[in-house]
C-alpha cells in the first residue's frame, strides 16, 4: 500500500499513513490543532493551510470550493475533513 508523510507543523508531529486517508482523521488522533465541527465539509471549522505539497491532495469538490469561498479562505487553504492525502504534505491550522 502506498504511503505518504503528513507533518502537522503546529505540534511538530509527522505521521506515516496510507494514501487516501483524510487529514482530519490523523489530526484527531495525534492531537493537532486542526479540529473539526461537522466533518461533512459544511462548517469550515477544519480549514487548514497547506504549507507544502499542495498538489498532493485530492481535488476539492464543488461543495468544498463553495465552503472555502464563503469562509474567505486564503491561498492554499483546504478543508481537512474533505482533503484526501495522495502524497507528502505539511499542514497547519488556517
Amino acid at each position: 500500500m502506498a504511503k505518504a508523510k503528513v507533518t502537522f507543523l503546529d505540534i511538530g508531529v509527522t505521521v506515516m499513513v496510507p494514501v487516501g486517508t483524510r487529514v482530519i482523521e490523523l489530526s484527531e488522533k495525534v492531537g493537532a490543532g486542526l479540529i473539526y465541527g461537522c466533518r461533512e465539509g459544511d462548517c469550515g471549522t477544519c480549514m487548514m493551510k497547506v504549507e507544502e505539497g499542495w498538489n498532493n491532495l485530492s481535488e476539492p469538490s464543488v461543495v468544498e470550493e463553495k465552503v472555502l469561498r464563503e469562509n474567505m479562505a486564503g491561498k492554499h487553504c483546504r478543508l481537512a475533513c474533505q482533503a484526501q492525502i495522495l502524497g507528502d504534505i505539511v499542514v497547519r491550522p488556517a
Binding site: 500500500m1 504511503k3 505540534i11 511538530g12 508531529v13 509527522t14 505521521v15 506515516m16 499513513v17 496510507p18 486517508t21 490523523l26 488522533k29 495525534v30 492531537g31
Partner: peptide, 15 residues
C-alpha cells in the same frame, strides 16, 4: 512539554 512547545518532533507510524 506540549504546552511549552518543548516536545521533540515525533514521527508516528499509522500506515
Amino acid at each position: 512539554r506540549e504546552l511549552t512547545g518543548m516536545q521533540e518532533d515525533r514521527i508516528v507510524e499509522m500506515a
